[in-house]
Write a protein that binds this DNA or RNA. Structure first.
Length: 212
DNA sequence: AAGCGGATCGTCT
DNA sequence: GACGATCCGCTTG
């Protein structure tokens, strides 16, 4: 029986990315830093394969950017999209073989106020007399989307690319949450132009934090 | 409620 | 020199 919050073992990631993506649903992403830990439960993830997947970054071969994808499993692959958003992935397959899972949405579990602040959604409107009208923080939008969750957790390529997410001492850890596997749905991946028909997106059925 | 376009830059052609 | 594994605000209906 795995302990609650304990890091997932490296063997968990040393498998094909579609298996890993499916089983990552319900697991925790924990961002440790000097303050309180930030955490979210994975509710949506996509598998990206290697040489046989034109939609994957690894498809073009081994480059400086994609080095992590070909390295040992269980390491963070963080890249910049559209010049402004970071995306978090975790490397899969044994060392030497490319593959990863893109984390697309988290259900916030801990550190919601910090997440809101980092998202620029501190909530509440400052009135003319200096008082603050209550406007509830839109929790659903905190970490629902690959760019949003990186902003909420403060994940960047310079700081986090290549980190070992199986190491309890790491700034970024993927961990067990002690919950049974949720009811899962499968469909095509989002936002890609190649291999659009491949069913490689997994999400928790009915969960309101799924990005779409 | 849905659709459009602007922002912004590392990476590879 | 072009192009994204995106998000947000503004437009229209």
């Amino acid at each position: 029986m795995m302990m609650l919050g304990s890091p997932l073992p490296r063997a968990f990631f040393a498998r094909p990315p579609d298996e890993v993506a499916r089983e990552l649903l319900g697991k925790l992403v924990i961002r440790r830093h000097s303050g309180e830990p930030l955490a979210g439960r994975i509710v949506e993830a996509e598998a990206y394969f290697g040489a046989d997947d034109p939609a994957a970054h690894a498809f073009a071969g081994r480059t400086a950017r994609t080095e992590v994808l070909f390295g040992p499993p269980g390491h963070a692959y963080v890249y910049l999209v559209y010049g402004m958003h970071y995306c978090l992935n975790v490397s899969c397959e044994p060392e030497g073989q490319a593959g990863c899972v893109l984390i697309r949405a988290l259900e916030p579990v801990a550190g919601l106020a910090v997440m809101a602040a980092q998202r620029g959604l501190a909530g509440g409107s400052v009135m003319a007399d200096g008082s603050v009208m209550g406007a509830a923080v839109p929790v659903r939008l905190l970490a629902s989307g690959p760019g949003r969750l990186c902003q909420a957790l403060g994940i960047t390529r310079p700081a986090h690319n290549g980190l070992d997410v199986c190491d309890a001492g790491s700034e970024l850890v993927f961990a067990e949450d002690g919950l049974p596997l949720p009811d899962i749905e499968v469909g095509p991946r989002i936002g890609i132009r190649k291999a659009v028909d491949r069913p490689a997106r997994f999400w928790v059925r009915g969960n309101s934090f799924v990005s779409c």
